[in-house]
Design a protein around this nucleic acid. Structure first.
Ligand SMILES: [Zn+2]
Ligand SMILES: [Zn+2]
Ligand SMILES: [Zn+2]
Ligand SMILES: [Zn+2]
Lengths: 135, 135
DNA sequence: TTTAAACTATAAAGCTACTATAAGGTCAAT
DNA sequence: ATTGACCTTATAGTAGCTTTATAGTTTAAA
């Protein structure tokens, strides 16, 4: 299988595949005499694994870590579970932060319901006055 | 006021101030004979405005847009309010996406409550099997 | 007074996870 | 023979800084 076929199969761009190879997430495939990369089914599985991890929001570093666990299949999976726990709490804190942000933005927006001149815009005034507890 | 004092006053790093100047968000200040930047109170206000916008999650481009409105104070503030509305909906969609992600991660995590070998880890299996509706 | 700490300057690279562009080699078909 | 689709590498761009390198300036201590 050449790179274009693999890309289409998994639903990524060819550059992304080369990028993952360069980052050490995908093993370098064999090459044809003309230099073209030749991929096996294993590469397809590896690439699909990476993509599913990315969809779950895992960073390339975290994926790398998971791969290192896969290479050592008789270790206890504590580290894998811990990695996911960390990631979940990371996602949760992002959610919390964004919810607080939304609240602030909504109250800021509420300070200017009508059409005024920029000079008197409640939104701009709210930002400029700096009545935000963060700063 | 020199750059270090301004930085301390507003709570940013000096490089960040130079960066904002370079990006056209902060007007270039006068210079001393030795080349050192000299800032006025106005610069402090401008910088604080930028920082508060950043805390609200606004991009530098959005901040630039807001500044252009400030420069034209007798326009109606419709565009300001609209910018904020857009930003709020952006934040909301991020929250929604992250909540869906969290749900998926939690269910994935639940598939491996006990300590097993990596080989049998429910988390890794869950990712590898690809029973995710996205892919 | 010398010297070292603290401050300033510019320019360039690094960070994440790609995406896009450039310039070119290979292959099948027309 | 030439088009078009595919492949190659290398390089730059994205966002918002942060870090590093290198060097000049000011200020305070020894
Ligand atoms: Zn994570
Ligand atoms: Zn308004
Ligand atoms: Zn926005
Ligand atoms: Zn497990």
């Amino acid at each position: 299988m050449r790179i274009g076929q693999l890309a289409q199969l998994v639903g990524v761009e060819t550059q992304t595949i080369r990028f993952y190879e360069q980052q050490g997430l995908l093993p370098p495939p064999d090459r044809q005499d003309n230099g073209y990369r030749v991929y096996t089914e294993k590469h397809g599985e590896g690439l699909a694994f990476i993509r599913r991890c990315r969809i779950l929001g895992l960073s390339l570093a975290e994926i790398h870590e998971l791969q290192s666990y896969q290479d050592d299949p008789h270790q206890p999976c504590t580290a894998v579970n811990a990695l996911l726990d960390d990631h979940i709490s990371h996602v949760r804190s992002q959610i919390t932060a964004l919810q607080a942000l939304e609240k602030q933005l909504v109250s800021l927006r509420a300070s200017c319901n009508d059409d005024r001149e920029v000079e008197a815009c409640g939104v701009l005034a709210g930002i400029s006055e700096g009545n935000m507890h963060q700063l």
